[in-house]
Design a protein around this nucleic acid. Structure first.
Lengths: 181, 181
DNA sequence: AATCTATTGAACGCTTCGTTCAGTATTATG
DNA sequence: CATAATACTGAACGAAGCGTTCAATAGATT
């Protein structure tokens, strides 16, 4: 890809993040973004169709990084073997905490619902292969666990992530009563 | 209250509901609303500060009705004694199903996140007095249960509410492993 | 009957949107 | 290096919505 294009894209993403820390999504205008990014108006619309389109790309980038199965993950080794559910949970929590400063401002904003909405499918994927031994409908359980997981992450954010990742995973498994026998 | 005022208010709420069934919230303009409601522009702004303000009032009315502890509730008697958690759950499910046609169009829309966001505090109140016997933080559990409850209601809506209220309550208690004893 | 209150709808200024275009700068390529 | 292709610029534009104002009208309340 053309260097210029990549650069502009980065600038816009960057500006968007900076603005999200200052004000809520719905109050950010395209003019705000291009001013902060030092980019022409036409350039913005050359990259993204609308502001919502930018949001979507932005979240995808953010979440894909968090949920990337391997790759550029600098997790301590013992946390990186995500075989048990607990370990996989810790992995997610870890990434959340790592992006704490970004996450906090985005996911606690007044418009946070928009972000969480985009977040849900990723979480569901996390639970999809589990819990097939129940007599409840599969999708029901996926919804059940995804919902509780997300809402407890919100709790975590509101507590300023004071609880450790390991404790969070323990909490979750205890609350959901998922102890391996 | 002046009859005229009440009437205008009703007309606006009504028009809003009709429009919500046709298009997503963010695409509804104030002009749409006043046209549908047959009401002057100034009248709208005499009642509500903004479109968001209308949404808020609208949801409050909707949810307060659902969560009203007693009163104008025509539930079959055996469902109306909401002493156990199960019975209280059934009560909520019942009201959801009763407002099915409204709920479906609103809560499955693309902007549904906005509505669910307003919905969460009500659900949390439902769980607040429960589960104080755990060694997990109280608020953590409230978040846990509220999150799973809401997400499973979404599942229910997506299945067109094919499952009965009683089964839904059973599902929930089973998934959360809340069997008494 | 007299007073108070709500509705009306056109008009206004303002903000934001998304597009266009001609001119300029940067990059990839051969 | 020369050339073609691509990207950026920024002003300008029309369209859409917003929220407000006001004088005139109609309806409630006592």
């Amino acid at each position: 890809m053309d260097r210029r294009k990549a650069r502009s894209r980065d600038e816009i993403f960057n500006a968007f993040l900076i603005l999200l820390k200052k004000k809520r999504y719905s109050n950010i205008t395209v003019k705000d973004i291009i001013d902060e990014a030092n980019v022409g108006r036409a350039t913005f619309y050359n990259h993204f169709e609308t502001k919502d389109d930018l949001l979507k790309s932005f979240c995808q980038k953010l979440f894909e990084h968090i949920f990337s199965p391997e790759g550029d993950c600098d997790l301590p080794i013992e946390l990186d073997m995500r075989y048990t559910l607990e370990q996989r949970l810790v992995h997610i929590y870890y990434h959340f905490k790592k992006s704490k400063k970004d996450m906090l401002s985005i996911l606690k904003s007044e418009d946070a619902d928009i972000f969480w909405g985009i977040f849900v499918p990723y979480i569901k994927k996390l639970f999809e292969q589990e819990f097939l031994d129940s007599d409840l409908p599969d999708n029901y359980l996926v919804s059940f666990y995804a919902g509780s997981f997300i809402e407890t992450i919100k709790w975590w954010l509101n507590e300023n992530m004071a609880t450790s990742e390991k404790d969070m995973a323990e909490y979750y498994i205890k609350a959901a009563k998922l102890e391996e026998k």
